[in-house]
């Protein structure tokens, strides 16, 4: 059934703005192919839209403003520049370098904790939470077979208030790892599982995130979430108890 001019005139702005589905696009295009008035309206809006984009006085962000923003956000806070601070800072830098060289394990631990939190954040941001969406542990656990050289424990913790959402593959410290995904109310808990015993982080507090590490049946587990610390501890205890 063909649409009327009145209907098409209402659809034309949405057509120009790319807000129509394929069916509506087809209706508009078939109508304007036979209707010079509606075609004229459509072309007028397209010309205006193109002219606004082409002629708009778009301004690049000044370097000075970018520098101010970076100084106020991503760069570490600096002390006020006083003369005694220079040798003090130099001494501090030498000390930090010494610590970096003498205690590389600590640095790696920090970096690994950041890697875990980054993976957790990324899973929440990119709609990339689960490769195998299932609340059934008998579906999630076998899914990892053939993908990993180990088989993670996947307990059903729904009764304890931590329903299973599924699992996905991860890559930690250049090795494949499993990520089990649980939920506590509205918060997600990612449990990263590897057979790599290098890092033993018992617990880590970060800006809004907690990381808990536990060793269970020969594998390494790291639970990462923004749930409260007691909740994450309760999760760890429930996890370990369920497999005991």
């Amino acid at each position: 059934m063909s649409v009327t001019c009145t209907e098409v005139l209402k659809l034309i702005p949405l057509y120009v703005d790319g807000e129509l589905d394929a069916l509506r696009i087809d209706e508009v295009e078939r109508h304007v192919s036979d209707c010079p008035e509606c075609l004229g309206q459509l072309e007028m809006l397209q010309r205006l839209s193109q002219a606004v984009r082409a002629q708009y006085d778009y301004q690049p962000l000044p370097d000075s403003v970018l520098a101010r923003i970076e100084a106020a956000t991503v760069r570490p806070l600096r002390a006020h520049p006083v003369r005694w601070f220079v040798p003090f800072a130099a001494g501090l830098a030498i000390g930090a370098a010494a610590i970096w060289m003498v205690v590389p394990g600590l640095v790696r631990k920090d970096r690994f904790a950041q890697q875990l939190v980054s993976s957790h954040v990324r899973s929440l941001m990119l709609n990339n939470l689960v490769d195998v969406p299932s609340s059934d542990r008998h579906t999630v656990k076998p899914w990892f077979q053939g993908k990993l050289s180990f088989s993670p424990t996947v307990p059903d913790l729904a009764k304890q208030g931590f329903p299973l959402l599924g699992g996905r593959l991860e890559y930690l410290e250049e090795r494949p790892a499993a990520a089990l995904v649980y939920r506590r109310n509205r918060h997600i808990i990612n449990v990263f599982v590897t057979d790599n015993p290098v890092f033993g982080l018992s617990e880590v507090d970060s800006a809004g995130f907690h990381v808990r590490h536990f060793r269970f049946q020969g594998l390494e587990y790291w639970a990462v979430s923004e749930v409260s610390e007691p909740d994450l501890k309760e999760f760890e205890e429930a996890f370990v108890a369920s497999g005991a």
């Binding site: 570490p76 950041q114 980054s118 982080l201 970060s206 800006a207 995130f209």
Partner: peptide, 8 residues
């Protein structure tokens, strides 16, 4: 152990 994760 508390670690700053400002880098993240």
């Amino acid at each position: 152990m508390a670690l700053s994760l400002k880098a993240v």
